[in-house]
Nucleic acid binder design. Structure first.
Lengths: 324, 324
DNA sequence: TACAATAAGCTAAACGTTTCGTTCTAACCT
DNA sequence: AGGTTAGAACGAAACGTTTAGCTTATTGTA
């Protein structure tokens, strides 16, 4: 591996000049050419470690997700990465596979490898632990907040999303609407349930607790809980499902029972753009602003990396109902 | 941030001794305690950059995937990461979102940040480009091979997987079997098609080209191509779909048309364990050995990092048909 | 023509580790 | 008691950059 010294020797210039050029500084045209030539000739690459040691920057943003196989997070990260890349930063992704132990470990890893910022979708961790692990590195929470932890966060407005979905169904004269919601230790899943209750309150429609089914965000629970709803002595006339995988499960269950969506049971899915659009007729779904979440997360990260000292902001982005 | 020097000062020991201890060396019990105490007191953490600069190792494995939202790759990576973690290595994931430009860029990034090895699911890149980007870093290909590129690779035996799936259907007297297969620039998708043709040859059953539908591995194409098969003047009596998302699409299409799987049209899915198991009756599917692929990839990586100089190996792992 | 102002390049010190070769200490043997 | 040896600790150099402070060359202006 050749170093900056080799380039200096080859070109007859000093280390400082080479370094200056590499970092975007101005050098004489003639020297620029010489340096370029030497770089290609010797196949020089800057040493990441040496640079990091001096600058204390890695130009790298760590991303920690509950799982690596989620279309939702995949989309958010893609949007974010695109934006960061434009500014010379790169994303590095880790997942903890829903394991609370690993959640902390991976966080420690990111800190250890000196990422300049951390974008984090938390699950179990509490404010205190997070504080103790991460110091001096800006953290941006995505999709979920952590109670009592002060930092930037970008979330979708789950409460209003469900609220409008319900309103749409109320307008169509439904008053018994099934809800398949996620684990209640996830802040946004809680919010979705709150939205469900609040809209009932506001419209003076009683909530039948039987209609609230708590799943764990996977396909199987969507399938099982949709069936559970239909097996009630008094089944709902409409069902709203609140994430990607459970939407697949619920639609499959409906199809199997020969229930025509949305004619026999009205239906609103969540996040699963592909599936909801592909079925005939297309089904309405709540679409969280994935690209916007990614872009905003990137914006905040860049702002912090630029030394921004504003108080932490909680950004609540609007979800939208695909169509009614 | 405190450094090893602070620990030395605090304990009265020399840099060398602290470093030795940090790297697992033996020191007097009394000193060990002093060092430990100083470390917690000063909240010392080794500087990743400085260590890397000296050792030329990052203890980090870069993983590059076509997309970050795939249950298949997610599972493979999880298995791999678990194994690597046991040996003190960590995985760092990037994706190129099916973008050939980004595929190269991300590869360069991984090289630049000095990962010790690269695990790579390639799509478009050719041997020459890859060679020019990655030098002196062991590469392990996963799921797909690259023509003319000599390196370790771990793939599932797609050819035989499809072969056995077809045999199972032949045994049930099907002779017109639809195939929904992936893009033919992906090596394993090619193999799956070859397996389809070969088994027909071997069984002396003619191939009707109409029955071969080439999709692009997403939900929509599974849906559309299943419908295309059913719309043939002479539709197949069984259908085999060859990845996760297209399996969702195909099952949905079948359900919508009121086709009972597997009674009216026999069916074999791929990879989508959740969905195929949840439907009633459960549908057979080809299950690629995701965990094994991950573990084997890790094993090879570790072997290379340990200086292993064996010739590159192409590991072809057996897929299995869930049940008949 | 002389002088300031600007641009370009240089020297050398630092960043925080690891590691080689050396020195010190104490235990063991004959 | 003298000599040997193993174990522990040490001193110092090196890894490949960046950057502050300085020198030299060039240009424009009075």
């Amino acid at each position: 591996m050749s170093t900056i010294k080799d380039i200096a020797r080859e070109t007859g210039l000093s280390l400082a000049t080479i370094s200056k050029y590499l970092n975007g500084g101005h050098v004489l045209d003639q020297n620029r050419e010489r340096i370029e030539a030497a770089i290609t000739k010797l196949d020089y690459k800057v040493n990441y470690f040496a640079r990091g040691l001096k600058t204390n920057r890695s130009m790298t943003v760590g991303v920690l997700l509950p799982t690596i196989s989620s279309p939702f997070f995949g989309r958010v990260v893609a949007a974010m990465d695109g934006r960061l890349r434009q500014c010379g930063y790169h994303s590095i992704v880790c997942s903890y596979d829903f394991d609370p132990q690993l959640e902390q470990e991976q966080l420690r890893l990111l800190v250890n490898i000196n990422v300049d910022a951390i974008v984090f979708v938390p699950q179990q961790i509490d404010a205190e632990t997070l504080t103790s692990i991460v110091q001096n590195v800006p953290v941006v929470l995505v999709d979920r907040a952590i109670p009592d932890y002060r930092c930037d966060a970008v979330v979708a407005d789950s409460l209003n999303a469900i609220y409008s979905a319900m309103e749409a169904l109320f307008r169509k004269q439904h008053s018994r609407i099934g809800l398949i919601v996620g684990p209640q230790d996830i802040s946004t899943a809680r919010e979705r349930l709150i939205g469900y209750r609040r809209v009932h309150e506001d419209y003076h429609i009683p909530v039948d607790e039987e209609l609230i089914q708590v799943g764990n965000y996977d396909l199987e629970s969507g399938y099982r809980l949709f069936n559970a709803l239909m097996d009630l002595t008094q089944p709902p006339s409409a069902v709203c499902v609140t994430n990607y995988d459970m939407t697949v499960g619920a639609i499959t269950a409906a199809h199997e029972r020969g229930i025509a969506l949305p004619e026999q049971v009205d239906f609103i899915g969540f996040d699963n753009i592909d599936l909801c659009q592909v079925v005939t007729p297309p089904l309405p779904f709540v679409e969280q602003p994935m690209d916007e979440m990614g872009r905003e997360a990137a914006r905040i990260v860049l702002q912090r990396l630029d030394g921004g000292k504003e108080p932490p902001q909680l950004l609540r982005l609007k979800s939208k109902l695909s169509h009614v």
